[in-house]
Computed example of a mutant assay.
Amino acid sequence: MAAGDFAAGDERADGGSRRGCRAGSRGAALRVDLDRVPALVEDRERLWGMVSAATFLSDAEKRAMLDVKEGA
């Protein structure tokens, strides 16, 4: 699964919620912790495995790809 494929998973998880909240919530932000969405567990595990196995990436690049803050 390529990184672009996983972007579709993001839309599945929170796209509808974002569209529904957009009109009446100026300045509000909605963020979904994709690691906690049961329907995406297999996708996330596959993504973590692929990024972890990418020896040509630095740890900082891996964290950036997975949206993980340093020290988290």
Rank of each mutant, 00 (worst) to 15 (best):
M1S: 13
A2C: 04
A2S: 15
A2P: 10
A3G: 07
A3L: 13
F6Y: 14
A7C: 08
A7F: 11
A7Y: 10
A8M: 09
A8P: 02
A8K: 15
G9A: 14
E11Y: 07
E11S: 09
E11W: 03
R12V: 12
R12E: 09
D14A: 07
D14R: 11
D14E: 13
G15R: 06
G15C: 00
G15E: 05
R18Y: 00
R18W: 08
G20C: 01
R22S: 03
R22M: 05
R22V: 04
A23H: 07
A23K: 12
G24F: 11
S25C: 09
R26W: 03
G27W: 12
A29N: 08
A29M: 08
A29H: 14
L30G: 04
L30F: 14
R31K: 15
V32A: 01
V32D: 01
D33S: 01
D33P: 02
L34V: 13
R36T: 12
A39L: 13
A39G: 13
E42A: 15
E42M: 04
R44I: 09
L47N: 00
L47E: 08
L47S: 00
L47V: 00
L47C: 00
W48I: 05
G49N: 13
V51T: 02
V51W: 00
V51E: 01
V51K: 02
S52T: 12
A54I: 02
A54C: 06
T55S: 15
T55C: 09
F56M: 11
S58Y: 04
S58V: 03
D59N: 15
D59G: 03
A60H: 06
E61L: 05
K62Q: 13
K62G: 12
K62E: 06
A64W: 09
A64L: 14
M65R: 14
D67Q: 13
V68D: 00
K69G: 09
K69Y: 08
E70G: 11
E70T: 03
E70I: 01
E70Y: 05
G71H: 10
G71C: 03
A72K: 02
A72P: 00
